[in-house]
Amino acid sequence: MSSSKQALAHPAPGSGAAPGDKPGAARGAGGRGTPAPGPSSWRSRLYRWDMKAAPYAFISPFFIIFGAFGLIPLLYTGWYSLHNVQLSSLDHKSWAGLDNYRNLLSSDFFWNALKNTFTIGLISTVPQLLMAIGIAHLLNYRLRGSTVWRVVMLTPYATSVAAATLVFTLLYSWDGGMVNWLLGFVGVDPVNWRESTWGSQFAVSSIVIWRWTGYNALIYLAAMQAIPGDLYESAAIDGANRWQQFRHVTIPQLRPTILFTVVISTIGATQLFGEPLLFGGVSGSKGGSEHQYQTLGLYMYDQGWIIGNLGKASAIAWSMFLILLIVAAINLLFTRRLRKSQ
């Protein structure tokens, strides 16, 4: 198989600009995806079979394993959502049709949780992603001790939840908390961070931002590593300053990854429950006495795990799925319209 090794060597000789053209030339000769004429028809048949089957072989591990251990439980959850079923009596469920969903639509708690999920999602995700891209950009410079900086950025994600809980409860405590103490210097009255609506949503968002900014920064950093250096070089020759390079080289090149983080963060924000739960402390699943920071994920956790209404909780889980589908559909329509108008 020395031939293929050579082919692979083409694009990366040690010097010269010429090799850049070669793959293109090769494509011209061979055509997209057409195999080179093999020495035997057996080989070419094998080759053709490989071309056809490989994609499926590559994606099959995911679908097989997920199908066996991920999909079945999720479908079960969907089945539960159509029943009256308690966590303590899984075998005694009675058919409820869409009752659980109908009840949600008429429940103030559900709409309140949806609203909170949206606002907390907004004030946590947007700054988080903006900061992450900035940090990634800085990490992408030639830095002394670059590995150490990367490691440090990911420590919030690795820090134990128990430890983070203690720290943030102490920071945001009403009486004698560090944040209120600092606010006192600028003459602001102590804020009851847990019980005020905006205060609690801000505090929860700050924990989310603290925990996930470095995480997203690393994702961006990986994508930045793949941006060709000569793009920056030619931009510099054109007189672009650092900001312009960032704006006109880095950002466009990151588009697929930005899309990825936006999708993931949207899903993550919809399902958010860990941070508000830890912020709330004892009986944190209520999200405050007026549910002022109860997200959909937290409402689901409270209903299914604490109260034991598995059917209703499952309906919340699946309505999150439906909500995300609606968001995606709106997004699609919006971009289509935008494209057409352009």
């Binding site: 251990f69 999909l71 999720l74 079960y76 959850t77 539960y80 795990w305 598995l310």
Partner: peptide
């Protein structure tokens, strides 16, 4: 598949 929260699925799993 990511859009359905996994916390409740632990029971059937």
């Amino acid at each position: 598949t990511m859009m359905i929260p996994p916390q409740l699925a632990v029971v059937p799993l």
